[in-house]
Amino acid sequence: MTSGNPGNQAVLVLENGERYLGTSFGAQGETLGEAVFCTAMTGYQETLTDPSYHRQIVVATAPQIGNTGWNKEDGESREGSDDSGKIWVRGYAVRNPTRRVSSWRASSSLEDELVEQGIVGIAGIDTRTVVRTLRDHGSMRAGIFSGDALAGPDELLSRVVGAPQMAGANLAGEVSTTDGYVVEPDGEPRFTVAAIDLGIKTNTPRMLAQRGIRVHVLPAGTTFDAITDLKPDGVFLSNGPGDPATADQVVDFTREVLGADIPLLGICFGNQILGRALGRNTFKMKFGHRGINIPVIEHATGAVSITAQNHGFALEGEAGEEFATDFGTARVSHICANDGVVEGVELVSGRAFSVQYHPEAAAGPHDAAYLFDKFTTLLQGARA
C-alpha cells in the first residue's frame, strides 16, 4: 500500500533485494540495521525500548500496532524523553498503525514518540510476507527509506549491503550505563548484587529490589577488581545486544567471579556469557527467538514455562548434557520446546546459573519470575 501523497511514501529494502512499498511511520529519512521479527501481540513500548534491539529493524507480526499509545512508565531503558525510555530499535515496520489511542495511561501516540526520538519506520506493508522471507532466508540487513533518503532501487540496495552485519558486532558497550547507579530495595537491604549492564532492562533491577537486594548497576567494562570494594553477595549478568563471541572482557570477568565462588545469575546475553566462561561456543541463529510466547523445558523436572525472549545468538549444546569446566561439572539445564536450542546452563554445584529468556517479563508472561527467588535463595545459602 502506498500513500496518495508522494511525500509520505517509504520503502523497506532487504539485503536479498526484496522491496516493500508503504507509507512513512514516525520520522522520515534513512535507517539501516538487521531485519528481525517479533511475534508479541502486546508490549510494543517495552520492545522498542529494550536495548537488546540496538541496531535492529523490528518487523511486528501483530497486524495492528499503537492501540495503547505511549506512556511515561513502561519504557525498559533509563534514557529517553519524559522518562518514557530511549527507543533502541533502528527502525520499525508495521502493517496497520492504529488511528486512535485507546488508553488512559497514554501520554502521546506511538507515532508521535517515533518522531520525537527520530526513529524511521514504515507502515502499510504486508508484514506476513516479510516474516516469511526472514524465516526462509534468515535475518538479514535491511533499510527503511523515506523523504529525502529515497533513491533508485540499485542505490538503496547498495546502502543496505554496505551496512555492518550483526555477526561480529560488539554492541554491549554502546548501550551500557557509563557511570553506574544504585537501585535500592524497599526496606532494609538483605543482599548486595553487582549487576553488569550489557543492555539491562529497567524491570530487572526492580525485580531484584523487590526481594530485598541492593542492586549496583555497573558498566559493561567493569573489572573484577572494581567490584571487590562492594563485597557483593552475588553478580548478575544482564541481557544485551550484539555477538557474544566478541565479549571477551566480560567473559574473563565472569571466570574471575566463578573462580572466587561468588553466586552468579545471567539472563539472555548473560546466559551466553556464562556459557562461554564455562567453555561453550556460541553461534548465530537463522532468525532467532523474539516474542513473549516461547515454550522452554526445564530438563530436570520436565516443567514448561512460557517465556519472553529476544536473541539471535545461542549456545551450543543438547538437553541435559553435562560437561567438565574449570569450575566443576556444568550442564545444559533448559531447552526450547520449539527447536531444541539451549535455554539455560548451570554449575551442578548450584553456584551459578543462567537462562536465555527474560524472567523479568516486560512485556510477557510471569512463568519464570521464580528464578529471581531461586537466586535470592542462593545468595542466602552462600552467606550462611
Rank of each mutant, 00 (worst) to 15 (best):
M1K: 02
G4V: 11
G17R: 12
E18K: 14
Y20Q: 07
L21E: 14
S24E: 06
F25R: 05
Q28G: 11
G33K: 05
T42Y: 00
Y44G: 05
Y44Q: 09
S52M: 09
H54F: 15
R55A: 11
Q56L: 12
V58M: 07
A60G: 01
N71L: 08
E73F: 07
G75A: 08
S77L: 09
R78I: 14
R78G: 13
G80W: 08
S81L: 13
D82F: 13
G85C: 09
G85N: 10
K86G: 13
V89S: 13
R90V: 06
Y92L: 15
V94D: 07
V94N: 08
R95V: 12
N96V: 14
T98E: 14
R99N: 14
R105D: 15
R105K: 15
A106H: 10
S107L: 13
S108F: 12
S109I: 11
E111G: 14
V115C: 14
E116I: 13
V120N: 07
G124C: 08
T127M: 08
V130P: 05
V131K: 11
M140P: 06
I144P: 03
F145S: 10
A149N: 08
P153E: 10
V160W: 01
G168A: 03
E174Q: 11
V175I: 03
V182F: 05
E184D: 09
D186Y: 01
V193W: 01
I196T: 01
G199N: 00
T202L: 02
T204Y: 02
T204V: 14
T204C: 02
A209N: 04
I213E: 00
T222I: 06
T223G: 04
D225Q: 08
D233M: 00
D233G: 00
G242A: 01
A245D: 10
T246D: 04
Q249H: 10
V257F: 02
L258K: 08
D261P: 06
I267F: 03
F269M: 12
G270Q: 03
G270E: 01
Q272L: 04
L274Q: 03
R276L: 01
R276S: 03
A277C: 03
A277K: 03
L278M: 07
L278A: 05
H289T: 00
H289D: 00
I292M: 00
P295N: 05
I297H: 00
E298R: 10
V304A: 08
V304H: 02
A308N: 07
N310M: 07
F313L: 04
A314C: 06
E318C: 10
F323S: 13
D326N: 11
G328L: 12
A330F: 05
R331Q: 11
V332A: 05
S333Y: 01
S333Q: 05
I335Y: 07
N338C: 00
N338T: 06
D339S: 04
V341I: 09
G344T: 10
L347C: 08
S349V: 13
S349N: 08
F353Y: 12
V355K: 09
P359G: 13
E360H: 10
A361S: 15
A363Y: 13
P365M: 15
H366F: 15
D367I: 15
A369N: 13
A369C: 10
F372V: 11
D373L: 14
F375G: 12
T376F: 02
T377W: 12
